[in-house]
C-alpha cells in the first residue's frame, strides 16, 4: 500500500518526500479534527454525568 503510494508520487526524491509529508499531515489532521471528535462520544470513556 505504502509502496504503491510512493511509486505514484510524482517528481524527484525531495519533492516526493515533501509530498509524502504533506499527505501524512493531512491524514493526521483529518483524524484529529474530524474523525476523532465524531467517534469519541460513541466510545465509553468520557461519560461523567448521571441521569437526572
Amino acid at each position: 500500500m505504502y509502496g504503491w503510494i510512493w511509486r505514484h508520487l510524482p517528481g524527484p526524491l525531495p519533492v516526493r518526500i515533501l509530498e509524502a509529508t504533506v499527505l501524512a499531515a493531512g491524514v493526521v489532521a483529518l483524524l484529529l479534527f474530524v474523525v476523532f471528535p465524531w467517534i469519541e462520544p460513541k466510545l465509553p470513556f468520557n461519560n461523567v454525568t448521571t441521569p437526572q
Binding site: P44, F45, N46, N47, V48, T49, T50
Partner: peptide, 12 residues
Amino acid sequence: TTCHPRFSDKQR
C-alpha cells in the same frame, strides 16, 4: 460528578 475509574465510564 465525574467518571470512575479513570479512563472508564463503568462507574461515577
